[in-house]
Amino acid sequence: MIFLFRLLREGQFWYVLLVIIALILAYRFTSVNENIFNSIERPFLAVFSPIHDFFSTIVNFIANKVASVKDIFYLKSQNEILKKKIEELSPYQKIYYELKTENEKLRRMLDLKQKTYDFDLEAAEVIGRDPGNWSNIVIIDKGTNSGVYKNMAVISEDGLVGYTVDVGKNWAKVLIITDNRSSISAMIQRTRDNGIVKGSVSPAPPGYIKMVYLPVDASIVKGDVVISSGIGGIVPKGIVIGEVVEVKKESDNLMKYAIVKPAVDFNKLEYVFVIKNYTYRE
């Protein structure tokens, strides 16, 4: 109140009020009519994406050099760890091949067709990120010129990154799965329980995601892998989203939720793949 009175007395009340009204009107126009926002955004980003590209190339170059110098000190220990991992995993490789052949045989016996995914992938470089801490949007250097359009899933070699929400000729904005506006249909790989993966919402800590609407009797445990369920049509089925770190009951005791650690390290995201025209054949 004191603030408002002072504003009135100093004659700046109308200045502040006018700007607020103008911005609310700007919000109304640009959020309802996407074309208005696109006509402002496209020329702007056409100029800024090459600058973004230039900056990110320099920063990535320096970061990679620093990382490779740091890595020298860890190479020996890393080598030992990897050797141990190979020893641990080699029996599983044999089991995997055996199970694969058995599976193929059984499928043939049951006359089931092999499930296959046809992904048309477009490699892209991350050239910019939302500078704030509230939202998670990255800009990539591929757009409609490369066949990238709105609502296409974006993945990295580790798993799901997000999906495109806005596209220009040579850029696209990708809404990351940790953004609180993001929600994706998912399932637990082991138990096949379905749910929705939402961005950083309470009580998930920053950088983690929350899987909601899980059945109360679902036997989900820490370490279970979460994959996309394919429902919704944007993200194909079977893309790794992350790993369960905690499972709890909702306050109403009717549902469960899981805190999921994303498979992708979004801090180190440099290159991604946009899934173009994915088709699911059965």
Binding site: L23, A26, F37, F44, I139, V165
Partner: peptide, 8 residues
């Protein structure tokens, strides 16, 4: 303009 989906 650069990172958002609307102005405001």
């Amino acid at each position: 303009i650069i990172y958002g989906r609307f102005i405001g």
